[in-house]
Amino acid sequence: MDRIILAPLWLTSNRWNARGPMSDKPHLFIILNPVAGHVQADTVHKIFIETFGCNGINYDVYETIGQENVTEIVRDALNRSYSMIVAVGGDGTVSEVANGLVKQDIPLGIVPLGTGNLVARELGIPLTVEEACQLLVGSHTHTLLDVMQIGQHAFVPHISLGIYSQVIDKTTIEEKRRFGMAAYFWRALQEISQQRSWKVTISVDNQKQQVYASLIIVANIGTIGIGALRWGSRIRPDDGEVDICIVQARTVGGYLSTFWHLLNGQPWRAPETLYLRAREEVVITADRPIPVRLDGENFEQLTVRIEVVPRAIKVITPLIHKEKKFMAITAMNPATGEPIKEYKEMTPAEVEDIISSVHVWDPGIC
Score class of each variant (00 low, 15 high):
Ile235Lys: 00
Phe48His: 05
His38Gly: 10
Lys176Ser: 04
Val94Ser: 06
Leu294Pro: 04
Ile125Leu: 05
Val247Ala: 09
Asp353Val: 10
Tyr275Ile: 09
Thr330Asn: 11
Pro348Asp: 03
Asp287Phe: 04
Lys344Leu: 02
Asp105Leu: 08
Lys199Asp: 14
Pro289Asn: 01
Pro157Lys: 06
Ser23Met: 12
Ser356Pro: 07
Gly296Pro: 02
Pro8Ser: 00
Pro34Glu: 01
Ile73Thr: 03
Ala154Pro: 06
Arg196Leu: 13
Ile354Trp: 13
Val315Asp: 04
Pro363Met: 03
Arg288Cys: 09
Ser214Cys: 10
Pro310Asp: 01
Asp362His: 09
Val360Phe: 03
Cys245Ile: 10
His158Phe: 15
Ser13Ile: 13
Leu256Gly: 10
Phe155His: 12
Thr115Asn: 07
Glu272Phe: 06
Glu68Asn: 06
Trp198Pro: 03
Leu263Arg: 10
Gly90Thr: 08
Met22Gly: 15
Ile31Tyr: 01
Ile329Phe: 09
Ala312Gly: 04
Phe326Ile: 15
Thr141Asn: 13
Gly180Met: 05
Leu262Cys: 09
Gly296Gln: 02
Ile320Gln: 14
Gly240Val: 02
Ile106Ala: 01
Val351Cys: 13
Val252Ala: 12
Asp146Trp: 02
Ile163Arg: 00
Thr51Met: 07
Ile30Leu: 03
Thr93Tyr: 02
Asn55His: 11
Ser193Trp: 10
Leu136Cys: 03
Phe155Trp: 11
Arg305Pro: 11
Gly90Asn: 11
Leu215Gly: 06
Tyr184Cys: 00
Val119Pro: 02
Gly20Val: 02
Leu78Gln: 05
Trp260Ala: 06
Thr336Val: 05
